[in-house]
Amino acid sequence: MALTIYTKNEQATGEFAAGAIKENKPLGFPQEGGSLRPFSSLFYWAHAWSDKGGLIGEHPHQGFEIMSFVLEGEIEHYDSQLRGWKRLSKGDVQIIRSGKGITHAERFLPGAHIFQIWVDPDLKKTLQKPASYNDYGSGSFPETDHGGYTTRLLKGDGAPLTMDAQVDSIKEINFNTGLHSLELNSENVQGLYVIEGALKINGNDMGQDDFVLINGETQISIDVENTTRVFIIDLPVHPGYETYAEMQGISTLI
């Protein structure tokens, strides 16, 4: 059983639009540094934001499934299938299944914050498929009140988000002040990101933008001093196919 914390200072960073768009990345591209490496089907995870707004120009993707979760504000998206711009607002989610190939662009409106997460399907299959995407409105995702915290289910049984990559669940959790217990699948591995607030996980302090990798835990204790918002992804340790990271000889932690 293990918990490994990656503070914001240990993560990779990036920027676009001459610095108008900033990023910190618990899991960046291999050449970007940072302490964490790809694991299971998770290849890349960036928190991107812009105070004044900015554009990431049209660029290609192939193979990977790319999810954008709008945390605050609004973004606009363009791709070579849509051939037009579409706006996504706080709570909305988009997935691009890039398949054989697609190009797209993103515009951040002032104050926008997003997660962009890349997951790795079985490329031997998905590279033969045409690209596709879906946009999901914020009201599409079921919420559950657990008494002390609420869970918004983004991927999993009862949630609309579908993908080819092996990902069991994705949740956004809002914790009230107090002590909480969170049940986990000990046969899986989880990545948890603190969007805002601060907490202790099994006695370990974590603050905003910190990330923890959880492996082999059936339950974690969470002590929250103030309202805290986290994002957690739950994955099988081995997705059942050779991942891109394994094909490229990129070392993984698990």
Rank of each mutant, 00 (worst) to 15 (best):
residue 64 F to Q: 09
residue 29 F to L: 13
residue 118 W to T: 01
residue 15 E to G: 11
residue 61 H to P: 00
residue 182 L to W: 04
residue 139 G to I: 06
residue 159 A to Q: 04
residue 241 Y to T: 03
residue 224 V to D: 05
residue 128 Q to E: 15
residue 58 E to Q: 13
residue 148 G to N: 03
residue 110 P to T: 01
residue 230 V to I: 15
residue 4 T to W: 03
residue 111 G to A: 13
residue 93 V to D: 01
residue 130 P to V: 05
residue 83 R to E: 11
residue 127 L to T: 11
residue 100 K to M: 09
residue 166 Q to C: 01
residue 24 N to Y: 13
residue 213 L to S: 02
residue 62 Q to T: 13
residue 193 Y to L: 13
residue 40 S to Q: 09
residue 146 H to Y: 02
residue 45 W to Y: 15
residue 185 N to V: 09
residue 108 F to Y: 10
residue 119 V to K: 09
residue 199 L to M: 14
residue 5 I to E: 04
residue 40 S to E: 05
residue 169 S to N: 07
residue 35 S to G: 14
residue 45 W to N: 03
residue 126 T to R: 11
residue 232 I to F: 06
residue 42 L to Q: 09
residue 140 S to H: 08
residue 77 H to V: 06
residue 227 T to G: 12
residue 247 M to A: 00
residue 3 L to T: 10
residue 51 D to C: 06
residue 128 Q to C: 03
residue 75 I to Y: 02
residue 81 Q to F: 08
residue 34 G to T: 11
residue 210 D to S: 09
residue 132 S to G: 08
residue 201 I to V: 15
residue 228 T to I: 03
residue 5 I to T: 07
residue 116 Q to L: 11
residue 234 D to K: 02
residue 231 F to P: 05
residue 54 G to Q: 06
residue 197 G to P: 00
residue 9 N to C: 01
residue 18 A to Q: 14
residue 201 I to T: 10
residue 97 R to D: 02
residue 211 F to A: 00
residue 85 W to Q: 03
residue 103 T to R: 10
residue 29 F to H: 10
residue 239 P to H: 10
residue 179 L to Q: 14
residue 216 G to H: 05
residue 226 N to D: 13
residue 130 P to N: 11
residue 55 L to P: 10
residue 14 G to T: 08
residue 213 L to N: 04
residue 24 N to F: 15
residue 236 P to S: 08
residue 249 G to N: 03
residue 147 G to V: 05
residue 126 T to W: 06
residue 161 L to D: 01
residue 90 K to Q: 11
residue 35 S to Y: 09
residue 242 E to L: 11
residue 3 L to F: 04
residue 149 Y to T: 02
residue 15 E to T: 12
residue 65 E to V: 01
residue 187 E to G: 05
residue 29 F to G: 08
residue 22 K to Q: 15
residue 166 Q to M: 07
residue 189 V to Y: 02
residue 14 G to K: 02
residue 173 I to H: 04
residue 52 K to M: 04
residue 9 N to E: 14
residue 92 D to K: 00
residue 160 P to V: 03
residue 123 L to Q: 08
residue 126 T to L: 06
residue 223 D to H: 07
residue 7 T to Y: 08
residue 101 G to R: 06
residue 32 E to M: 11
residue 106 E to C: 06
residue 13 T to H: 12
residue 206 M to H: 06
residue 35 S to H: 12
residue 195 I to D: 02
residue 67 M to G: 08
residue 157 D to V: 04
residue 239 P to R: 13
residue 230 V to K: 02
residue 212 V to G: 02
residue 79 D to G: 07
residue 44 Y to W: 13
residue 50 S to M: 10
residue 223 D to P: 07
residue 9 N to S: 14
residue 47 H to I: 12
residue 159 A to N: 02
residue 16 F to Q: 08
residue 98 S to Y: 00
residue 180 H to R: 04
residue 153 L to S: 08
residue 199 L to E: 06
residue 205 D to L: 12
residue 46 A to S: 15
residue 42 L to W: 11
residue 217 E to A: 13
residue 147 G to F: 00
residue 212 V to L: 03
residue 248 Q to K: 12
residue 21 I to L: 10
residue 202 N to V: 07
residue 155 K to W: 00
residue 223 D to Q: 12
residue 237 V to C: 01
residue 53 G to W: 09
residue 90 K to R: 09
residue 218 T to H: 08
residue 7 T to C: 01
residue 210 D to T: 03
